[in-house]
């Protein structure tokens, strides 16, 4: 099968690759780039386990061709921690037990990342609504909602600290 050339930035690194036109972004990330933190849970774009950020927006990577990522910037769960330090969302999911089997976790965290970028202090209702494209079969969602709330608090505290430091 013929291939096409794509250029993207994945977790801050430039990537150039030849892909089959039919290759889904999720398989490109997992199998070509070995970024196996992005998971596949369904074949119908329902479960959200494959969620990544494309140009900052949460997208289900099983519904996007790798070719469509050409020229775009992608962030996966592996790109969330900085210099080995966990992102507040990662810390919050651990501390508030926002996971059990761990399979939906990457997608939950990336969708929450997007939500918290749009809305620094979401209500419980807003969190539940925004996470409704991500399925979890283990937790019953309550601990996930608590994790997102706690992450929002951690991120806001961090921002205040940063502002204080600037002053």
């Amino acid at each position: 099968m013929s291939t096409i050339k794509i250029r993207t930035k994945v977790n801050g690194k430039d990537v150039e690759a030849e892909v089959e036109p039919r290759t889904l972004l999720v398989h490109f990330l997992r199998e070509e780039l070995n970024l196996t933190g992005t998971h596949v849970g369904c074949d119908t774009s329902n479960c959200g386990a494959c969620t990544v950020l494309i140009d900052g927006q949460a997208v289900k990577s099983c519904t996007v061709l790798a070719a469509q990522a050409n020229g775009k910037e992608i962030t996966t769960i592996e790109g969330l921690s900085r210099n080995g330090e966990l992102h507040p969302l990662q810390k919050a999911f651990l501390e508030k037990h926002g996971l059990q089997c761990g399979y939906c976790t990457s997608g939950m965290i990336l969708t929450s990342f997007w939500l918290l970028k749009k809305n620094k202090d979401p209500s419980e209702e807003e969190i539940r609504k925004n996470l409704s494209g991500n399925l979890c079969r283990c937790t019953g969602y309550q601990s996930i909602v608590e994790s997102v709330k706690y992450a929002a608090q951690l991120m806001n505290e961090k921002e205040v600290e940063r502002e204080m430091a600037v002053r």
């Binding site: 970024l35 196996t36 933190g37 996966t76 651990l94 996971l99 761990g102 976790t105 990457s106």
Partner: peptide, 17 residues
Amino acid sequence: DSSAFVRGSGHYVDDIK
């Protein structure tokens, strides 16, 4: 190690190559 899951560094069966 469940802390691996928030980093995306779990070892599920489809991750094996």
